[in-house]
Design a protein around this nucleic acid. Structure first.
Lengths: 334, 334
DNA sequence: GTGAAAGCGCTAACAC
DNA sequence: GTGTTAGCGCTTTCAC
């Protein structure tokens, strides 16, 4: 607990070279004679020297640390994104400072301020809405920022997403084509752009393509959890829907169980397509058909994009769209 | 993107005071006249000054950053722990550097080295086994370390856990008392102390208390995932078990579904008690009876403990045990 | 190929 | 109550 900190200076003295040379060795700088290099490395080993990243950060103005802001690590979608980010970060020798925001503006601003104060080299932001204050802070930040699995309708930020609108349209279309006259959309809070500007529009696209009017009574907003899904089942049934596109697996599981618990036959009497293809989808009975998203990759690609930006390279595309898919299970008719 | 960094020196000049005074204001030091304080604060606002935490860290030898090492954020158990840690950390104005280790010794050592290099003020470690090398690094570290939801049989590290042995014994006893002659234990890898030294022993305790010999054929080890649970069902049935204590909810869900899918009646023909009471337990049909653990609190309490240690306070107890519970659902007979 | 020296932006004595 | 002055441990010109 009270180890004597051993510094680059100690190494220099022991190895009978200058601090500069030790620094070169530590940083893999080529301009060092092999012999000197080995001597220095030996001393480093002997002394158990470990470079102080804080001092290095101050001197070089690079911390090899990036900030990751997400609503909640406990949410599997974001945890998966975070994992993709961390793996790529480790690969490029960056560490991540993780901060939960609960989608609260205050926390987001707070955390952003902390992160910037800590001189992170970049930030990956996740969250379903980006308000003006946050956007202002983004602009003031002197480090690159990438949105992962999070949309900014203005497209002013770098981002990595899938085509939510198209994915939702496809799922809706499929249900419509299966003969359902009334397909419901069960989305998250309408204040979130990802719902109002993308998923809802995709749903409408499908109706339009089928020359059917959209019935507002078929559009529901819930929180992203199992109970919300369970509780909304009655309303969905009351709206005379015979199928639903659901934007969250927990919600879909809740809806499904409520339906099954009350005797509705799935998929014969009611069809469901959910959104994230999380492991939940194979645990329910019947198993949930789902849109598939490369969630891990969304994280990995955004981190890769950030490394480029931190390196002052301009990426080819500012708003990357990764492909999505669909997997047919037992909550849809074949 | 190319903001001019504005430093404490700029503020001092503008406010016509010394750097020391600005520092005092920023750090809430009391020894500053109200008038001076206000003047400085005004300038800070005008200039949009934001203290550089890296410089501060170098000068003060405190980074207000802690390291959090866990096997995988994607695992709900650890995500929940991490959330508890982050909430308390934020409360005490610490940020967390999060690192996934995949329980790999190499990664753990690597990450530990990075973290120590970054001069974190403390570390919270999660992982089901602690080998000698890691323990050696722990000893060499000059910052406090707390294990959260992770056991070290030597009890040499600070830690926060529940009484896994007792919890497992209780669950096993209940199943035995329900009339099951052959209760299986489905645990994780036996190399992990939490399984071999705690949960297995608890299972044995229950058999001993009932004066029954333990049949090795009833003890299974699996990975912590749904598929493993699904696949082991046949073996469990072949071993003529009529009940099982399972240490992971995903595994339990897999076992349950496999059983139900193959026509076994739960709980009449087979009873199950699982371990973490995650949201999965209410999603399966029938719903899973479970031991309950205060997972979030495990994280929160370990972070609280760490703040004390970083503050050089000696905690009352080095190995905190939080209470566990049990919730009766539909995979057990009443 | 190597060294000397000036910072990086801040805190923490210590003086006044 | 406020200012002066060393550092903190490293990187980075700039010489040689």
């Amino acid at each position: 607990m009270e180890k004597q900190t051993i510094t680059i200076y100690d190494v220099a003295r022991e190895a009978k070279v200058s601090m500069a040379t030790v620094s070169r060795v530590v940083n893999g700088n080529s301009n060092v004679k092999q012999e000197t290099k080995e001597k220095v490395e030996a001393v480093i080993n002997d002394l158990g020297y470990r470079p102080n990243a804080v001092a290095r950060g101050l001197a070089s103005r690079k911390t090899t640390t990036i900030g990751v802001i997400l609503p909640d690590v406990t949410d599997h979608y974001f945890a998966e994104l975070a994992r993709g980010i961390d793996d790529v970060a480790q690969m490029y020798h960056y560490q991540i400072i993780l901060a939960n925001s609960d989608e609260s503006k205050d926390k987001e601003l707070q955390v952003l301020d902390n992160l910037l104060g800590k001189q992170v080299d970049g930030i990956i932001f996740m969250g379903n809405m980006i308000n003006e204050k946050v956007r202002t802070e983004f602009d003031r930040a002197d480090v690159p920022i990438v949105l992962a699995g999070s949309v900014d309708p203005t497209e002013k930020q770098y981002s990595v997403n899938i085509d939510y609108r198209k994915a939702t349209a496809e799922a809706t279309a499929q249900l419509l084509e299966n003969g359902n006259e009334r397909v419901a959309l069960i989305m998250g809070p309408a204040e979130q752009a990802i719902n109002s500007e993308y998923k809802l529009k995709g749903y409408q696209d499908a109706y339009n393509a089928h020359s059917k009017p959209v019935d507002e009574a078929l559009i529901f907003s819930t929180d992203y959890d199992y109970q919300s899904g369970y509780q909304i089942a009655d309303l969905v049934l009351a709206a005379k829907a015979t199928a639903a596109v659901v934007v969250d697996d927990d919600v879909a599981a809740g809806l499904l169980n409520a339906l099954v618990d009350s005797g509705v036959k799935v998929p014969t009497d009611f069809e469901i397509i959910t959104n994230n293809n999380s492991r939940l989808t194979v645990m329910t009975r019947p198993q949930l058909s789902s849109i598939t998203q490369p969630i891990y990759d969304l994280g990995a690609v955004s981190m890769r994009m950030l490394t480029k930006l931190m390196n002052l390279e301009e990426p080819d595309v500012s708003n990357i769209i990764l492909p999505h898919g669909y997997v047919d299970r037992d909550t849809t008719q074949h």
